[in-house]
Amino acid sequence: MNFLERLGLSIPLIQAPMAGTSTPEMAAQVSDAGALGSIAVGATDAAGARAMIAEVRARTDRPFNVNVFVHSTPVADPARETAWTQWLRSLFVEFGAEPPKALRTIYRSFADDADMLALLVEQAPPVVSFHFGLPSEEAIAALRGRGALLLASVTSLDEARAAAAAGIDVVVAQGIEAGGHRGMFDPAAPDAQLGTMALTRLVVREGSLPVVAAGGIMDGAGIAAALDLGAVAAQMGTAFVGCPESAADEAYRAALAGPGAYRTVLTPLISGRPARALANRFTALAGDVPVPDYPIAYDAGKALNAAAKARGEHGFGAQWAGQGAPLARPMPAAQLVETLREELAMCRR
């Protein structure tokens, strides 16, 4: 049985799991419309994930995806973290605040979170996806044993091969155009920065796993192009940020509709890992101070954004977006899926 048939999808589309932006309501609306809706639980704990899964299931009986972060365990470095907060200090002072005295590991990696694994095994969501890396053999076996279809983001052919060897069912080929965090397994390793087209085709040609194309895809023509490259589906995130079911705040929505959409920036400054965002005051920062590990650096980034927002400055938010951002069309999530279905059908005539 192929990917679409297994999940009962009527359109080859996954709504990307965007931590802090996608919501259970959005996932349910997308799934009910015939695509695969997603929630991201990497920024919460097992209790929070349980509540999100319960809300999705209360809203739909269709398959959905639960995404977790599998980043390397961060290494605390008090000296580096102090240097980082002092480098940001003038910005905090600008908004009448002081930087945090110490930075915390605000997100626990799935690789270190036995409670999250136990929850997912108990809840058995139809799809579980991994970002930033791969979990242990034991975790993969436990989730497969509960019938979950397993997806993993990859940014290179080597990562796709590792996913296949680990027992992943489908890989999400994330091109450099994609918004949000790069899914690369090792952010310290050289990044070939492959675009969606090249990466998708390379992984499809490898032939070991079905491929979902992700990065810069915003309309039915983009989905059609992904399918022509041999992908089984496309994953779209930025296209859904402007939907009313999204958790994006008004400043994020306004920025997505503004001139910054034409110039996205890939930066590690906000969180400690490379991520593509709309150009704003945070992405414009420059310096040679080493950034703390992800997600320790994100603790400082979130504190700075909170201080700035309290004074009416919205240029320090994590306004993640891909290079296709100018093509965004704000509309309800289900309506967007139907629009994409019609556009894809036109491209297939």
Results as ranks from 00 to 15, higher is better:
V204D: 00
F185V: 00
D228Q: 07
L199V: 08
A148C: 15
R146E: 07
A152L: 06
V204F: 00
A165N: 13
L157A: 11
A164N: 02
E159H: 12
T196D: 09
Q193C: 14
G180T: 06
A160M: 05
A162Q: 15
A173P: 10
S156N: 03
F185E: 10
F240S: 08
F185M: 02
A231H: 01
G183P: 07
G220E: 14
G179N: 03
S208H: 08
D191E: 09
G195A: 07
L227H: 03
G237F: 04
L149R: 00
G216F: 10
A166V: 12
R182W: 02
V204H: 01
R201C: 00
A189C: 09
T155A: 04
T155W: 08
V203R: 08
R201W: 07
A148S: 15
A231V: 08
G175R: 07
A192C: 01
A231K: 03
T196R: 01
I223N: 05
L149Y: 01
Q193D: 10
V172L: 13
L150H: 07
V204K: 01
A198D: 02
A231F: 08
G175Y: 09
A189D: 05
L199G: 10
G195Y: 07
L199C: 04
L227N: 05
V232N: 04
A162R: 15
Q193N: 13
G222I: 08
P187A: 01
R182S: 14
A213F: 05
A214F: 05
A226S: 15
E206F: 02
R146K: 15
D158N: 09
A213L: 05
R161G: 13
E159P: 13
A189R: 09
I223F: 11
A226W: 03
G230I: 11
A173R: 04
T196W: 06
A225Y: 01
V203I: 15
D191S: 06
P190A: 08
L209R: 13
T196K: 11
V171N: 10
A188I: 00
A160R: 03
A160F: 03
A214P: 06
A160K: 04
A162L: 13
D228T: 04
L151T: 10
V204S: 00
R146N: 01
A234G: 12
A178L: 10
H181V: 12
D219T: 05
A160D: 10
A234V: 08
A152C: 15
L194T: 06
M197Y: 12
H181S: 11
S156H: 03
A234P: 10
G147F: 06
D191Y: 13
L209W: 04
G179E: 02
G167Y: 13
A198S: 14
A162M: 11
E159F: 12
I168L: 07
A225Q: 10
T238Y: 14
M236Y: 12
G216N: 13
M184V: 15
A234E: 06
A148W: 01
M184K: 13
G195R: 10
A163G: 03
D186N: 15
G179S: 04
L227E: 02
Q174R: 11
D158P: 00
A214Y: 09
A152D: 08
A162P: 01
A188K: 07
Q193R: 15
P190I: 09
G195H: 08
P187F: 00
G167P: 12
T238I: 14
A213C: 07
F185Y: 15
A231G: 08
A234M: 09
A166S: 14
G167D: 06
E159V: 13
G222R: 13
